[in-house]
Design a protein around this nucleic acid. Structure first.
Lengths: 227, 227
DNA sequence: TATTGTTGGATTGGATCCAATCATACAATA
DNA sequence: TATTGTATGATTGGATCCAATCCAACAATA
């Protein structure tokens, strides 16, 4: 399979688990923008010392999920229409480019993996899985599309962009509608991808991201002007 | 000035200083790809404990300068032609886009700041400053071009990409030649930018990055096939 | 009353110490 | 001899402890 190989057995560190935990709370909206994250509070909650909490927060800062100011602690970064535009525009540049490269490299196994992740997303929607799982499966599909590009550096960038984008996606007023639309578009994407129609796949992906971004930004603008 | 505002007084933490120090050693080539970074060694060298060293290494991992494996420590990431392509292609997408947005927002003060940073680079070349300073000034010019885009998220991505790109730039066989070419192109970029010719500026910036990337990749391919 | 100064608790940043893991050399066995 | 098992030093990951900074409440002064 034409994918970038990762170490197959990576021992899980406490720092990494704490980072995952806090990230999930932020992305899920439990910690909204502006929320102060106290190291001691997290440490007590998880039964660990402050060291791994601090190190986790440093990683989340690199992901843009929190802002750290010296001796003042970590604050969950604020969401805004401008930030969403910044984020989604970057995705709009990188993802279509990567999907073009990916199609050129994709093996039949890669394509089978994409289909599998599409079906998993489909099934999860049918079952009415919770937003967290749906988001994970949605992104797994995107990742499967892009992974064969063999561009680990760009993939890492896209991954961190998605973590933040996910915060916006979870705010959506009509998630069911957005999910149905996304699934429909995933099916089209997969067909074009399987047919190795590079230009069409890139076009569909651009539209897929742009439409989602448009929804989010207009919703944010409404709430921002409403105050 | 239409730039994103940063906290004007940020107390410097030991972690940040250590991160800067190690990053400089990596970018400068003192720690080549594959080099094992021992926490204790760095700590002793700088007269600090291992804690800030570890935290610095986590930040550098997010920047892609080192790879950390659990209980096995940090290793300087390897350079390769494929990685350079990955890196520079991402810059080729993001920077021209950002410069387009920047021109639309740039104030006269922004343009004056760009000219100033261009002159500083010019003067440094004339003086024959060391590569580290030249690199810093070269990037200061790029930053000045892009900053008015008001896209902190994308700027952060581009910044980290440059840190790694810089490692490749420093390997160049004929730096003086590359610098002269760069300066010439900076002048053209500035003229187009000042005239607010968006398409032309984007075109020049694309060529500027692509040419540098081409040089580096062909040099790497030669050494890889030889090596 | 508005502004400036002061003090103490809360919180973060860093150092030291301990436990878990890894790597290397050596021994045991087939 | 080639392979597998074992033990020890080196190194990392995490906990605990201490110092520096911040913040809010209160006091002092004009």
């Amino acid at each position: 399979m034409a994918t970038t190989d990762k170490p197959l057995l990576q021992r899980q560190t406490v720092t990494a688990m704490v980072a995952q935990y806090i990230a999930a709370r932020i992305i899920g909206g439990d910690y909204p923008g502006g929320h102060q994250i106290r190291q001691e509070a997290i440490a007590a909650e998880l039964g660990v010392s402050r060291i791994p909490v601090r190190e986790a927060l440093l990683q989340l800062e690199a992901d843009g999920l929190v802002v750290i100011r010296t001796h003042r602690g970590a604050v969950v970064s604020e969401l805004s229409a401008d930030d969403a535009i910044d984020l989604f525009d970057a995705r709009l540049l990188l993802e279509p480019f990567l999907v073009e490269k990916a199609i050129a490299h994709a093996s039949d196994q890669d394509i089978a993996a994409i289909e599998k992740s599409m079906r998993a997303y489909e099934a999860a929607i049918a079952r009415g899985d919770d937003p967290k799982d749906l988001s994970r499966l949605n992104w797994a599909f995107h990742t499967a599309l892009l992974e064969p590009s063999m561009r680990p550096r760009s993939m890492a960038v896209v991954q961190t962009l998605y973590n933040s984008a996910d915060r916006y996606l979870r705010l959506q007023i009509e998630p069911a509608k957005a999910q149905a639309k996304a699934l429909q578009e995933h099916r089209q994407l997969f067909e074009a991808y399987r047919g190795r129609d590079i230009a069409e796949t890139a076009r569909l992906l651009r539209k897929h991201i742009a439409d989602a971004a448009g929804e989010i930004v207009s919703q944010l603008r409404r709430s921002e002007s409403a105050g």
